[in-house]
Simulated assay, not measured.
Amino acid sequence: MTDSPTKPDVSLRLLEIFDAIMRCGTTVEAAEQLGISQPAVSNGIRQLEAQTGVTLFERLHRRLQPTEEAVALHEDIKPVFGLLRGFASRAQDMRQGVSGRLRVISTPPLGHTVAPLAMRRFLKERKDVSVAYDVRRLEHVVEAVQSGHADLGLALALERHPAVNVEVLARTHMVAVLPKTEKVSGSTVSAETLAKGDFVGLEIESNLGQKVRAAFERDGVAYKPRVEVRYCATAAVLASAGIGSAVIDPYTAAFNAGLGVIERGFLPPIEVAAVLITRKGIPRSRLQHAFISEMRKALTDFAAGGMQTIFGPR
């Protein structure tokens, strides 16, 4: 029984040199493109010919003329180096933060108001970037970031959490929204005043719901909502329908201003933080840094002039 002939063990680097010469035509140009010396290119070709047993080039008038065998072999490897060049270019784009995919998840108060502005600005100059975006409840946001299913999370009223990193992006205060039929004077309204009429509360198990109840109790007023809802946007819709007043976050209130509700400052004040949630032990990519920067700008713009400043007249 005879041994099968040994196949040449050709390195990718030698094939890269071969590809460069086939595209450039001279060892000098190939060397410049590869960032190596001209003798290194010549040695590489001699080594490749020795390993394959195939004559690849003939020297004619100080230029290398590829043989028919070289042309045929180059046709086989061209797709490989096209993929490699594409890979290198895409990796560079990712490194510079102009290509790739970002996964963002948010609770509704930010996810349906300020975050879309940040995303619009973020995507404007990044044509090769895509975003996976979802709006869920707080526990789902934390779970998605912790498990690695989302890169960034956005939420309100979460100061810390043992499973994830929590970073405050901005601080603001909750506001009161009342049916437009209500007669209110002044720029603020108290928990005592709201308690005298029908009230739409946020579900008590939520962070915002607990903060609202604590404010009523701090004002010495019983917290007895006529209707209890899960989301601030729902509370705003019910207030516009004349069902009762509510205390909600200012982002949702401003975004739903077209519903015709009356917005006032709420006393006693309820401070809430807009926060960024990230996975522990994972460094941030350039894309993540860029989106976070746009989120900070959007929150600053809101503080300066509300949703009309951000999105324009609606």
Rank of each mutant, 00 (worst) to 15 (best):
G148T: 06
A144E: 08
A88L: 08
G148R: 11
L84E: 11
A91D: 11
K180C: 10
A20I: 02
Q96N: 10
T278Y: 03
D93F: 02
R171E: 14
G82L: 12
R46A: 13
E69M: 13
S285T: 15
P8D: 06
G312C: 11
G260C: 00
Q308T: 15
G111P: 02
H112E: 15
R46L: 09
L208T: 15
R121P: 07
V272T: 08
K180I: 05
L178E: 02
T2F: 10
M295G: 00
E68K: 07
L178W: 00
I248Q: 04
L154V: 04
A235P: 00
P179S: 06
G25H: 04
F199C: 04
L123T: 03
E228A: 12
V131L: 11
I277H: 07
P66K: 15
V237E: 12
D3W: 02
L202Q: 03
A214R: 08
L202M: 06
R46E: 13
E271P: 00
C24Q: 06
D301Q: 10
E159C: 05
L194K: 07
L73V: 05
G153S: 05
K280M: 07
A233M: 09
Q47D: 05
L156N: 10
G53Y: 02
L64C: 03
L152I: 12
S147W: 06
V114F: 02
L169Y: 00
P109K: 01
R46S: 14
V272W: 01
E217H: 13
R59K: 15
V227Y: 09
L152C: 08
M307E: 07
Q65M: 15
E125Y: 07
L238F: 09
G186H: 04
